[in-house]
Design a binder for these strands. Structure first.
Lengths: 171, 171
DNA sequence: TTACTCATGTAACAAGTTACATGATTTA
DNA sequence: TAAATCATGTAACTTGTTACATGAGTAA
């Protein structure tokens, strides 16, 4: 069994040509989906665990920095496939800061609600535009993720507009 | 600043009449959004922190179990409002097991894709039906969350159907 | 009186964060 | 040669998990 971070690391190494821990960290830091900060304290220990479990193979390069060139073993590929096709985990709801807060907004007064709805709309639309721009020069793995992130934001935009009309109707 | 768990705890105590740590844990365990397991090891320390920071007030009841009746202080209410209206956090993408895996499914062969898409559809639809059923006897706070969770699952269902037709078209 | 529920909490562990520390290689 | 980038890692801390431990109140 792989954790979400371990799965993400195997994707970077096995599918997206990030063959060093450093490049994996870089990919995480550059990704707009804020799943992981790509901190050294999480990535290096996770990669060590994956090596110990035989999912990653290392080919030490000859450079003086001790760069480790990482590749997926057969067991690593199998583990990644099993992880990515686990139906139960895939359809689980997950953590969503928007959903967690949405129930509270009805406790504000009408003016606060209207201005908050407005601020949320602006921010969500900005995020969509940022994601569309970022999507341009990404590989297919990242592209699929970005498209899904955009659809999530669009869902939020629709929800906010619907909420606005409910507020407007005085419900 | 509150963490996601601390915000969720203040909602339970301040808005949903879960006035003991035990009832908060119970609410988390019963909630179908698997954000938190409601483990004692997270809830009790978090509540202790919230008391220390002056966000929660305790009224010890006279029973022999040492039940602590918890309520939000004024500072607690303010902190909860600030937490719930933080726009940046609210529109952040968050962690989604579906999105994280979706990019990988294109590396499988056609037959594997079709059977996996099918399994995902069944599971997602089941989740929607479970959520609808659970929604019946919930308060407005939980209802809003459940509705958003349902809309997320419906988005996934549409995405899967779209993916199926792309597979079918041999792209 | 036995079993279930209500209620609190700790201990060992897992896995993330930031900040720190080091050094090689490349580019201006 | 100075600065930026590539590359590795550790240390202290935070916060979550499961499992364990305890005991009071209630209903069969």
């Amino acid at each position: 069994m792989l954790t979400e971070l371990e799965g993400a690391i195997l994707i970077e190494i096995g599918c997206r040509d990030r063959h060093t821990a450093f490049k994996v960290r870089q990919a995480f830091r550059e990704s707009p989906s804020s799943d992981w900060q790509g901190s050294a304290g999480s990535v290096y220990p996770a990669i060590r665990r994956l090596i110990e479990r035989g999912f990653l193979e290392t080919a030490a390069t000859t450079d003086g920095r001790g760069t480790q060139h990482l590749t997926l073993s057969t067991a690593g590929r199998e583990a990644l496939l099993a992880w990515s096709t686990n139906v139960e985990t895939t359809v689980s709801i997950g953590m969503d800061p928007f959903r967690l807060r949405a129930g509270l907004w009805d406790t504000m007064n009408r003016d606060e609600q209207l201005s908050h709805a407005d601020a949320l709309l602006v921010a969500a639309k900005q995020t969509i535009s940022d994601l569309r721009h970022y999507k341009q020069d990404q590989d297919k793995f990242e592209t699929v993720q970005i498209e899904l992130a955009i659809e999530l934001q669009q869902l939020r935009v629709r929800w906010i507009k619907n909420w606005q009309s409910r507020i407007g109707a005085g419900l």
